[in-house]
Write a protein that binds this DNA or RNA. Structure first.
Length: 489
RNA sequence: GCCCCCAUCGUCUAGCGGUCUAGGACGUCGCCCUCUCACGGCGAAAACAGGGGUUCGAGUCCCCUUGGGGGCGCCA
């Protein structure tokens, strides 16, 4: 069950991979998303693991955009991926590699394979192949290319039909992937067919491009989603045909939505920018994503620095995990409480601004001042901005339903008395506290009976940071004004 | 249909044959703290999918079943 290391590919890699101009060939990982959509949470985790491993091993982390699908790739998606990576703090080394730009190189490799007799031209039409698959389906046989052009002599070629290039895959024996997560995975070569390397228009397929790029980029460790596990066997065949060193693989179990179903748009597969908009912190995401499938004993709170020291491939779990927003919220709350008040105030300002609220340096000052009380009541920046309502509200305040209900005639009378008592005191938390308690005592009231009306009048809500802190942050004039507004009402 | 992967509390996980009457975290529930809500503290309920083996001994190893997931394109 536990994956164990099988051989030491790096040793061979250091000998064979090109452009190793230093005597010590370093480890290279890569993240290779295709820009057909946003960077979603599963991709982000894959990127994180690659990044952590490279940093841990003092290696190189590279980014490759697999934009060979010209129909579905968009510049917007590329931009979103790059921004997502930056927001997460996953900095990559070297230039970004764009796969499409390397098509010629890929085609060249395919041609080398044909020249070596390890790949061949196939003139079967798509229709013909579809029919073949249909028959295989009907017969309950495995669906794969039957090798009809594999051994035909060149003289059989169809002059007016552009052929595809297929790999001449081994037909017996097995292809073994020594995976750091899944262990040794064996595929009988009988189930692996002669897949296409080069399309009839001469462009390379994904399978070829990946292998060539990984080799050319010096990638030594491929950490990617489980959905590529069977691809690994095919890719391995290209690698072997070229006589290249095989990289170390680590196929991560896929992430599932909260309902256990495949991660889809409505099940948590939000673009990573959505998490930003939802008010989560990058460090939260790093910690959370790390714990989805990787563990270090019972540790839950793991700083990025600590993660870099601890991260390894052996502790990656083999089973898929679900995203859980409750836990994400809790973690975010932790990191927010730990964050500096100034940084949190900045984040809140940005959110308020986006909501069309006028932000001033005075507001920033107040936010920073109120932040200790605010941040322990919020799990996201969005909640923080919401909790800061009382700082941005203009008199007379709009009360929410609970606050309205709380301000009974009796409560308003208490407000009048409290207002008078406060008017006569120093405007410091301690003096305000003492004055309020004294007033409560002389009126034979519990402190809460005074504090809650005050809270409603001052914040428009029934929950807020400590009432004396609110008083101080709001200042004497504004506070008394708000109290007066409601005492009168 | 064929191939591959996976399976411990609701969720994330610890566990790498005996220390497991299965540990931690989130969530849930109760109590404490308390001007509200939080934070914090304390406590509770909550899991080895089922069946066969192997072994003196299995959550841990093997097989089967069941249940999830992935793959089987001139997509990536």
């Amino acid at each position: 069950m536990t994956a164990s290391p099988k051989g030491t590919p790096h040793a061979r890699a250091s000998r064979l991979i090109p452009h190793s101009n230093s005597s010590h060939m370093s480890l290279v990982t890569r993240f290779a998303p295709s820009p057909t959509g946003f960077l979603h949470i599963g991709g982000a985790r894959t990127a994180l693991f690659n990044w952590l491993y490279a940093r841990r091993m003092k290696g190189v982390f590279r980014l490759r955009i697999e934009d060979t699908d010209r129909q579905r790739s968009t510049p917007e998606a590329i931009e979103a991926i790059l921004e997502g990576m930056q927001w997460l703090g996953l900095n990559w080394d070297d230039e970004v590699v764009y796969q499409f730009a390397r098509a010629e190189r890929h085609a060249e490799v395919a041609k080398q394979l044909v020249a070596k007799g390890l790949a061949y031209h196939c003139y079967a039409s798509p229709e013909e192949l579809e029919e073949m698959r249909e028959q295989q389906r009907k017969a309950g046989k495995p669906i794969r290319y039957d090798g009809r052009w594999r051994d035909k002599p060149a003289s059989d070629s169809r002059p007016n039909v552009p052929p595809v290039v297929r790999i001449k895959a081994p037909q017996s024996g097995e292809t073994v992937i020594a995976d750091k997560v899944q262990g040794e995975v064996r595929f009988s070569n009988e189930v692996l067919d002669d897949f296409i390397l080069l399309r009839s228009d001469g462009t390379p397929t994904y399978m070829l491009s990946v292998v060539v790029d990984d080799f050319d980029m010096g990638v030594t460790h491929i950490i990617r989603g489980d959905d590529h596990l069977t691809n690994a066997a095919r890719q391995r065949q290209i690698i072997d045909a070229m006589g290249w060193p095989a990289p170390t693989y680590a196929h991560l179990p896929l992430l599932h939505g909260e309902d256990g179903q495949k991660l889809s748009k409505r099940h948590g597969a939000l673009g990573i920018h959505e998490y930003k908009n939802l008010g989560y912190l990058p460090e939260t995401m790093r910690n959370y994503l790390l714990r989805l499938g990787w563990s270090h004993g019972d540790d839950e709170i793991i700083s990025t620095q600590q993660a870099i020291e601890w991260f390894n491939l052996d502790s990656i779990g083999q089973s898929p995990s679900r995203v859980d927003f409750k836990k994400l919220d809790n973690l975010n709350g932790h990191y927010m409480r730990q964050a500096s008040d100034a940084m949190l105030a900045d984040g809140t300002m940005a959110l308020l601004k986006a909501k069309g609220i006028a932000v001033t340096s005075d507001l920033h000052t107040k936010l920073v001042e109120a932040m200790p009380g605010l941040k322990e009541r919020a799990k996201t920046l969005v909640e923080l901005a919401d909790g800061a309502y009382f700082l941005t509200a203009k008199r007379p305040l709009e009360l929410d339903d609970k606050a309205k209900k709380l301000l009974t005639p009796e409560a308003r009378a208490i407000l009048r008395g409290a207002g008078k008592a406060l008017e006569a005191t120093d405007w410091s938390a301690q003096a305000l506290d003492e004055a309020t308690r004294a007033y409560a005592e002389q009126s034979a009231l519990k402190l809460g009976a005074v504090a809650q009306p005050l809270r409603a009048a001052l914040t428009g809500r029934t929950t807020s940071p400590g009432i004396f802190d609110v008083l101080v942050v709001l200042g004497r004039a504004e506070s008394l004004g708000r109290i007066g507004d409601q005492a009168a009402g």
